[in-house]
């Protein structure tokens, strides 16, 4: 378990904190050092709304280590309302209920745990929206 690596990204993982480029105004997730649009440095943090829709998805039946107990589960490309696209696990939904264009919202859930004695990793997943707006 990489303690420092996970600790370093906790803000983006727990709450979907991205960045806004103060040179060109692009909204960016995950945070990075250089704006992918205008190649300028220096970013300001941006709290993303967590609202988006499923752009595409697939279902995992043969999961990697530490995810076996969750199979089968869906992984989706999520297009956020603010623009960025990201990959995330879907939750609270059966794979056969997922469809392209499905409105989803971010929730913070357990991603995995390192056995019974190791750390629990938390982070964003997406589920069907509860409220219409």
């Amino acid at each position: 378990m990489h303690i420092a690596r996970n600790w370093r990204v906790k803000k983006q993982r727990y709450s979907l904190t991205g960045e806004i480029c103060h040179h060109c105004g692009s909204k960016v997730f995950p945070p990075r050092d250089v704006c992918p649009e205008c190649a300028q440095p220096a970013y300001d943090p941006l709290q993303l709304s967590g609202k988006g829709e499923v752009y595409s998805f697939t279902t995992v039946y043969e999961p990697p280590a530490n995810f076996q107990e969750q199979a089968p589960y869906s992984i989706a490309l999520i297009k956020l309302e603010e623009g960025p696209m990201l990959t995330a696990q879907l939750t609270d939904v059966e794979p056969n209920q997922v469809h392209i264009g499905m409105p989803v919202e971010m929730v913070t859930r357990k991603l995995m745990q390192d056995g019974d004695e190791g750390l629990i990793q938390y982070g964003y997943k997406f589920r069907p929206r509860i409220m219409a707006h």
């Binding site: 727990y14 969750q70 939750t91 929730v107 913070t108 859930r109 357990k110 629990i120 938390y122 997943k125």
Partner: peptide, 13 residues
């Protein structure tokens, strides 16, 4: 609770 839920995730929402 679902497989990915615990007291922390419930408290957060």
């Amino acid at each position: 609770p679902g497989l990915d839920e615990d007291t922390a995730t419930i408290a957060i929402e």
